[in-house]
């Protein structure tokens, strides 16, 4: 297990290094000069040159890559071109919204999807199964921004249970913070939960067809106990793969929902960064997201090994 962990961590570091080179290179190739963008079209050439020197844009590419990398290792992501404040600070403020939102949405996803998928599989072809499958079909099909608007209209505008948008801030207390993330989290979770419930159901149905399920029944276990004791854990591997992908999506892919609910999250930061050629912010946020994705996949792989003893010896 230790050598497995060590190997995974090494490969994670290599992936990050490769990703950093690719991200840096792509943003180098992209047209658009940040200094020009900051000063506008009518800027004087010498002012422009001075700003370029100040931002370090006149240094050779290799040097800029290494100073960017070295900075990141110290937690220094540089100064945002447009906000004129440290990127680290900006990112931390946004992560404080995006990470809890993603976790919240993922928790809801799992809390809904697992029971729904398991019940549907256990009562295959029954009315319950049909209902669950019908509901998830709709959940996958409905665009989540539209669902977000419906939620807002019902729970904020009509019932006044939640505010219609914005983030209360954690300094007002945990409950207030969570409350302002609730509607966005539900809107994010709906399509994800629908997908995950379907994956859970089909994975469980495959498992229920395995020979060892029949063996367990021949031992005298009832259908329900067989399901819980022998099927669910075996069905989890494909489900976990999807959960890993979904977390990455929830963290980075919430741009639309953040905009609908007017939340200051990473999605909006990166969106603004791109439109304003704030390349240093874009680079840093993308790098952070890559790290998050790779780290979550690492956790998923560790979970595989914990679930399935067969993988412990192969690695």
């Amino acid at each position: 297990m230790t050598s497995f962990l060590f190997g995974r961590i090494v490969s994670m570091a290599i992936s990050l290094l490769v990703a950093s080179i690719i991200i840096f290179a792509i943003l180098e190739i992209l047209p658009g000069d940040p200094a020009q963008f900051m000063l506008g079209v009518n800027a004087q050439p010498d002012t422009l040159q001075a700003l370029r020197t100040q931002l370090g844009l006149d240094q050779p590419v290799i040097l800029r890559y290494f100073s960017w990398m070295a900075g990141m290792l110290h937690g220094d992501f540089g100064i945002s071109y447009t906000y004129r404040s440290p990127v680290t600070e900006l990112v931390l403020q946004r992560v404080a919204v995006s990470a809890p939102l993603a976790l919240y949405a993922l928790t809801l996803t799992i809390l809904v999807a697992f029971p729904a998928g398991i019940i549907a599989a256990a009562r295959r072809n029954s009315a319950t199964d049909l209902t669950v499958m019908g509901a998830t079909q709709i959940g996958v099909a409905v665009p989540n921004f539209w669902f977000a608007i419906i939620l807002m209209w019902v729970f904020a505008v009509t019932l006044h249970w939640f505010s219609a948008g914005g983030f209360a801030g954690w300094n007002k207390g945990f409950f207030e913070g969570i409350k302002s993330l609730t509607l966005p989290a539900i809107a994010l979770a709906l399509p994800q939960a629908s997908i995950l419930a379907r994956v859970m159901r089909s994975s469980l149905l495959d498992t229920l067809g395995e020979d060892y399920i029949r063996t367990a029944r021949a031992k005298g276990l009832s259908q329900n106990k067989t399901l819980w004791r022998h099927a669910v854990r075996n069905a989890l591997i494909p489900v976990l793969t999807i959960v890993g992908l979904q977390f990455s999506f929830l963290l980075a892919g919430a741009i639309i929902i953040e905009n609908v609910f007017y939340l200051p999250g990473l999605g909006r930061l990166i969106f603004q960064g791109i439109t304003q050629r704030d390349l240093i912010t874009v680079k840093s946020v993308v790098m952070l997201l890559v790290f998050a994705v790779i780290f979550v996949n690492f956790l998923v792989e560790v979970a595989y090994v914990l679930i399935d003893p067969r993988l412990r010896h192969q690695r």
Binding site: D211, G220, N234, D308
Partner: peptide, 28 residues
């Protein structure tokens, strides 16, 4: 009833199957 059958299976009547490679739960 199914409940009565459960108490019979594995207790009074045991059964073994053809494919030993897949007849055991791989995670237990």
């Amino acid at each position: 009833s199914e409940a009565e059958m459960c108490s019979l299976r594995g207790n009074e009547i045991g059964m073994i199957f053809q494919e030993p490679m897949t007849a055991l739960n791989p995670v237990k």
